[in-house]
Design a protein around this nucleic acid. Structure first.
Lengths: 329, 329
DNA sequence: TTGTAAGCGTTATCAG
DNA sequence: CTGATAACGCTTACAA
């Protein structure tokens, strides 16, 4: 691999001059510049970023940390992030954590070591104190799912309100027995959605039946089981609010298997407005998050931090929207 | 940020000694080692990878280049790659190309510049000559989708045979009028699948009706249109082979909208065995690729190249499997 | 307009 | 067992 020295030697100039050409320094004589560029072409030279970054201590790379790639939900957010970042010359890379703190730490190292300029966390598992500490030292922000109490910039939706709205809609449809299918793991979003669900019932004087609150994981399989279990309760639900579309799909499958007609006998609402909710049968009523915009805002927040690490933390809650489809009558 | 010098000073040893401790060099006296480690802890020091990599000219990062993240198909492959790589201490990062050659080139730069040690391409858009050139210079391999003629290591399935098998199955079911819904863009896989489709018909003495070959994109929307268009042909199909599950979903939607019962009136086969094919209604017959294994093999091939860039190129075709479900009677 | 040389944070060689 | 020091490839004062 050719280095800046090789170019310098061949072009019969100093490495400093080559460096200047590389960095579009005005002061270099046009002829020299041309000669150097010719050699660069000939040698197919491209500067080693390690050397450059070591010197500048900045790369134009940022990292997006996802818990998993197998979730349709993220793609539009990533798109928003990329749109904003790439126009500014940043490269966006994605890392998968599998919700493993150690993996998260390993990626934080990349940041500490200047291999990337910043990180957007999607589902941090690091405790809030440590996370806050990193946030003070490095450009790190949170998007969508977040750690409560961590003092970091954040963009998300108002999960509690969103769940409240969805539940209220089910109530307005005349449902008196409404179930919640949520996740076992204590994600902040799940917690908030459960709160919103409970609050909606409470405000509408519907007694909360704890039997109708089912803790599943995020897979459709567990949605199937949830549906079957709920139908066996003393007072089966006439509507089910699930905290994700994939759970909703499972629930609907389970209901169908038990002979229920979703959207007629029983209502189901999902969450995230992933593409399948539009293409399932029935199409699924779901809560839509402004994913593209969320990505863009996340990019903006991160950029703020990169440019001024001491800057104020911002918290942005973007508006959600209930997409009414066939799974609710 | 603390550097190795700070540690050395505080521990009253030379930087060389600190470096030895860091790299688990046997020769350092236990007491010294302990003292240094203590200081490292106190200072919260972690070595700057830029410096280290610059010196070693190797990072332990590899890059996986995906055309898009919004495809369920990739997740299991990535999992396989990660399983293999992380046990060897490698970090796996993902880049999105949007099928843009320029973006691909930008990522190749990361490789040239030693920010990553290797790249696994999923859908390279770079022409075969350039790609071959890079393959000679750097650790670069192809997985799943690939450029024909490029001399690179590759792991994929036998797309032609897979399509042949799927089509043959439709023929064995008694279908005489079989449609193909494939993609406009000329992916190698699409091309090969079309070939396999045609060959199966030919070998079974079924005349190929060009009207029944429909070129769509990869979205379910275009699948809907495909279905509607195909039903209007002079000789409508009794079976439809689509080259992706998402297309299959669209096709099924379209057929349902026209009052057809999929799996009874008409057969549909998808491709990739993505999770939704098991959860759709009807469940979808599809071609399964051994995605986890594909990822693992890809990792292995890349490692080979990283360890010895001059090594022989390998081409691996993994076995596929037809998953028979409700969408075919 | 250009060159010299210091320095970024490491590791590795060579002496001791 | 440890320390000095050159080197990795680059940028940037400072000098010329």
């Amino acid at each position: 691999m050719a280095t800046i020295k090789d170019v310098a030697k061949r072009a019969q100039v100093s490495v400093a001059t080559v460096s200047r050409v590389l960095n579009h320094d005005q002061r270099v004589k046009p002829e020299t510049k041309e000669a150097v560029e010719k050699v660069i072409d000939e040698l197919g030279y491209s500067p080693n970023l390690l050397g450059r970054n070591l010197r500048r201590s900045s790369t134009y790379n940022i990292l997006v940390l996802l818990p998993t790639i197998s979730n349709q939900f993220y793609s539009a957010i990533i798109k928003g992030i990329r749109e904003e970042m790439t126009t500014l010359g940043y490269n966006v890379m994605i890392g998968i954590t599998d919700l493993d703190v150690n993996v998260e730490m390993k990626h934080i190292q990349l940041l500490e070591n200047k291999l990337v300029d910043g990180i957007i966390f999607f589902t941090p598992q690091i405790d809030s104190v440590t996370l806050t500490k990193f946030g003070q030292m490095y450009p790190v922000i949170q998007c969508s799912e977040y750690v409560e109490g961590a003092k970091l910039s954040l963009v998300s939706i108002d999960n509690k309100q969103a769940a409240y709205d969805a539940t209220k809609y089910l109530i307005q449809l005349g449902n008196k027995h409404i179930a919640l299918v949520t996740s076992e793991k204590s994600y902040t979003s799940s917690k908030l959605r459960e709160e919103g669900f409970r609050e909606a019932l409470r405000e509408h004087q519907i007694p909360i039946n704890e039997e109708l609150i089912y803790y599943a994981d995020y897979t459709p399989h567990s949605g199937i089981e949830a549906a079957k279990a709920l139908l066996l309760k003393r007072q089966p639900p006439t509507a089910i609010f699930t905290i994700s579309d994939s759970l909703a799909i499972g629930v609907i499958q389970g209901l169908k298997a038990c002979g229920k007609k979703v959207g007629e006998d029983i209502d189901v609402i999902g969450f995230d407005n992933t593409f399948i909710s539009k293409f399932y049968e029935p199409t699924i009523t779901t809560v839509s998050q402004p994913r593209l915009e969320m990505g863009k805002q996340a990019a903006r927040l991160l950029l703020n931090k990169i440019q001024n690490i001491g800057s104020e933390n911002e918290t942005i809650f973007l508006p959600h929207e209930l997409m009414i489809r066939e799974s609710t009558k």
